[in-house]
Design a protein around this nucleic acid. Sequence first.
DNA 1: TCTATTGTTCTAGTTCACTAGAACAATCTG
DNA 2: CAGATTGTTCTAGTGAACTAGAACAATAGA
Lengths: 130, 130
Amino acid sequence: MVEFRVDRASGLPAYLQLGRQVREALRLGWLQPGDRLPTVRDVVATSGVNANTVLKAYRELELAGLVEARQGSGTYVKSSLGSAAPEALDDLRAKFAAWVREARSAGLEDEDIDALVRAVLSGGSDDGAG
Amino acid sequence: MVEFRVDRASGLPAYLQLGRQVREALRLGWLQPGDRLPTVRDVVATSGVNANTVLKAYRELELAGLVEARQGSGTYVKSSLGSAAPEALDDLRAKFAAWVREARSAGLEDEDIDALVRAVLSGGSDDGAG
DNA sequence: TCTATTGTTCTAGTTCACTAGAACAATCTG
DNA sequence: CAGATTGTTCTAGTGAACTAGAACAATAGA
């Protein structure tokens, strides 16, 4: 079962946060075809957002072909998104977690780590000769 | 000189994107006290956002004590944010870039990498025993 | 002083995210 | 069939983000 976390202070619309979390869960294998998402009313009770907002998120996922809504039953995962083997993901996650630990012990705050990661991922400069 | 990139499709308000980019540049040492930010009109011409939007971003940075606006002259960096040594940052960046390359060669798409990174950074589960 | 540059303020309006509440429709269970 | 559960639709309204355009204020430099 996926647990949604909606951060109202992030500035990102709630329906986008919900959609992103489902997509991430799909990529990491936490959600697989056939799994049921939390009901709209569940999410309303858990996260405090309005039913229409949840519905908007679910509808976009359905338009993308990722989930399927069955009235009276629930919303189910329709197709997967992951492109990597679970073992590879585990291995990479462990290595990245180690890197994070090293960064922390080097004195970096969480925001520093975030900035660094974001710079590499969006910038794409992976050669040290720049 | 910082180059702003405003992605209107990201869902994140433009003024937040601008503010975040300045903060990240401060954390990575790309901006230092005394440096001048692009003028409001520059940003307008470059990114296409409205002057009021740019001003909103700059004003929040000024409220945070990070920059100082001097009418007729420009907006200048007032204080730093980085908590780590430049060499440590370089070293960590190289290591993380290597990890990204490894992830790509393992078949992960950029979105997979993003999901994995986000999960580790926000979840904090860095032990493989979960 | 004069001129260009830059930050600043103001008004007016549009679009989108979100809320609130109610009602309807399909499915499952007994 | 009856009742509970779930997704769905609808109307109305609020507030934030953003746009557009104009004008003002302070600084730097000739």
